[in-house]
Design a protein around this nucleic acid. Structure first.
Lengths: 143, 143
DNA sequence: CAGACCGCTTGCGTTTTGCAAGCGGTTGCA
DNA sequence: TGCAACCGCTTGCAAAACGCAAGCGGTCTG
């Protein structure tokens, strides 16, 4: 299952062929900000992704080098997904999307306060805070 | 045709319900960086969006307040699409996606040199250059 | 040994996409 | 005045992706 010819060589278009859908960035969001690393954890987000779609997205993310998959040493049946440097550097993109949504989409006001505070800190902190979070993710995910 | 209940109130998820698909951000890219404002111009990008999809995306963008539509005064049959403040503030998101793609997706090296130079300037310049471009877009699109 | 849990897989109906053709109206030129 | 080129879409249809519910073989827990 090799990848098809890209529709263009614009870096934006090429990037969107990797994560330009509804679910992929939400999976990365949950891994980055909620510390989720197992299949069933990822399934239990508010958005209720269905299991076949989740399985497909995880496979695609692994295939594109945005995640790695390993067996949990304490649980032979459990898979552990880890971020890679390639996906960790997507953090600024995700944070900016969150900032834009907070500013422009009124529904986001209904978010719970704890989450909002967490997100706010990341947005207001700017690049230095992003870098700090990214280095923590590196410590937890890259071996 | 009111919008459905969102799947969650996370600002990232809400944002992705607006532009989390393959085509929407490419339309905005062409308007921001290639100065396109007419239907048929937007159809002629390298990615070859088909006309029914383009019509759908433009309608959705107008519906969400990311574009406005007006009649070209010189051409009764022509529609002119304009960016809004809401969409202009998506520029940092789009630039960051481009930066990520330039760094991580090897295919993007095949892009033509002129485009790459233009994109590179935006990425290396950082927020001050983004602001400059955004203010030019405001001058051209907001009345 | 029973029951809960693990990461998926399967089947199936619905929605979205992609492609090609075309439509009614407008404009520019001979 | 006639006609071709162009305008923003719309339509029909096949293929692909999505969303839901159920279930599967294996593993760990009490």
């Amino acid at each position: 299952m090799t990848q098809n010819e890209p529709r263009s060589y614009c870096p934006i278009s090429l990037s969107l062929e990797i994560f330009g859908d509804s679910w992929t960035l939400l999976v990365l969001r949950d891994m980055m900000f909620a510390g989720k690393r197992h299949f069933r954890e990822l399934q239990q987000s508010d958005e209720h992704i269905s299991s076949n779609i989740l399985a497909d997205r995880l496979a695609r993310l692994v295939e594109h080098g945005l995640l790695t998959k390993a067996v949990d040493p304490t649980h032979k049946q459990k898979a552990i997904y880890s971020l890679t440097e390639k996906s960790i550097t997507l953090l600024p993109v995700i944070v900016q999307i969150g900032a834009w949504g907070s500013r422009w989409v009124p529904e986001s006001k209904k978010q719970d306060k704890a989450t909002r505070k967490h997100v706010r800190a990341l947005q207001d902190g700017g690049p230095p805070v992003w870098e700090h979070v990214m280095s923590e993710l590196r410590a937890q995910h890259l071996k």
